[in-house]
Amino acid sequence: FSGLNNLRDITVSADYSALCGYTERDLETVFAPEVEGLDREEIRRWYNGYNWTGESVYNPFDVLLLFQERQFHAWWFETGTPTFLVDILTQRGFFTPDLAHLRADEGLLSTFDVDHIANEALLWQAGYLTLAGSRRTGARLEYRLAYPNLEVESALNDSLAKALIGQPSLASALTGRLYDLLVAGKPAALHAHLDALFAAIPHQWHLKTPIAQY
């Protein structure tokens, strides 16, 4: 009986869920002076949401930079572009809308073989998805995965869009145009914009690119 073979894994232990982040109480007490003047709901929407079956926590890196710069930004995401992750998801033809509501069992999430790791496990272990709930069906424990917050959701989808389009500047322009039309409430113009996007895809493109996988 070796102790090293019987370590306790506290990754999804509710007792330690707040071990590596700032809690709501931390912001209310320790960081009360820094929080003053900032929208608490926006702080929560941007940087809270990381959860390991217990109390949700804020990303410390984001929070500290927010207090210093006084503006909401994808601080943590930009510390390292997830090129490896984006490449894998695009190569596998992953359906990105599923990122908001994936499910995985506990065995899948503990996979560490990079060459054969499931998308769900990779995204969770890299910090781009978090635990949003769980349920037990017989002897099987299943977790529901979701984006932790607005920072990760917007920044990851932006990176995926640029990778799929292949031209970052064009992706930014198309995204900006789409946003403007939605905010302006112009359904006819939005319809024309979407039509143009789909019309720009060559009908035989699948012969030379992985688009046939989608």
Rank of each mutant, 00 (worst) to 15 (best):
L207G: 03
W205E: 10
S2H: 08
L89F: 13
R70Y: 00
V35R: 03
G107D: 13
L27H: 04
D26L: 02
L122I: 12
A155S: 09
G138N: 04
E120Q: 15
L7C: 06
Y147K: 14
W46I: 06
A100Q: 12
F72A: 03
L64E: 07
V183Q: 12
T83F: 15
W46A: 10
D115Q: 14
E120F: 11
L99V: 02
T137D: 14
I211P: 01
P202F: 15
A188E: 10
H206L: 09
P168I: 15
G166N: 00
N6A: 10
Y58D: 05
E34W: 02
F112N: 10
E41T: 04
D98G: 06
I10Q: 02
G127I: 03
A74Y: 11
V12E: 14
L131S: 11
E69A: 12
E36F: 07
G93K: 06
E151S: 13
Q91D: 08
L99Y: 00
S172D: 15
L19I: 02
N157W: 13
E106H: 01
F198L: 12
A161V: 04
F31Q: 04
W75E: 03
N119A: 14
E142N: 03
C20N: 15
L109A: 04
A18V: 02
Y128Q: 01
S154Q: 08
L150S: 06
T175Y: 03
T90M: 12
L182I: 13
G138P: 02
R92I: 00
L182K: 05
R177Q: 14
E78G: 03
G185E: 11
A14C: 02
A104I: 00
G80Q: 08
A161W: 13
T175F: 07
L207D: 13
D115H: 13
T90K: 14
Y58M: 06
I10V: 06
L190F: 13
Q91L: 10
D98L: 15
W52F: 14
A18I: 03
R25I: 12
D87R: 03
A161S: 04
S159A: 15
E153I: 01
A132P: 01
R70P: 00
D9Q: 08
Y16V: 09
E24L: 12
E36K: 05
A200C: 10
S56G: 07
P187N: 14
D113M: 14
G3C: 12
L160Q: 12
Y147V: 08
N59T: 09
T83E: 01
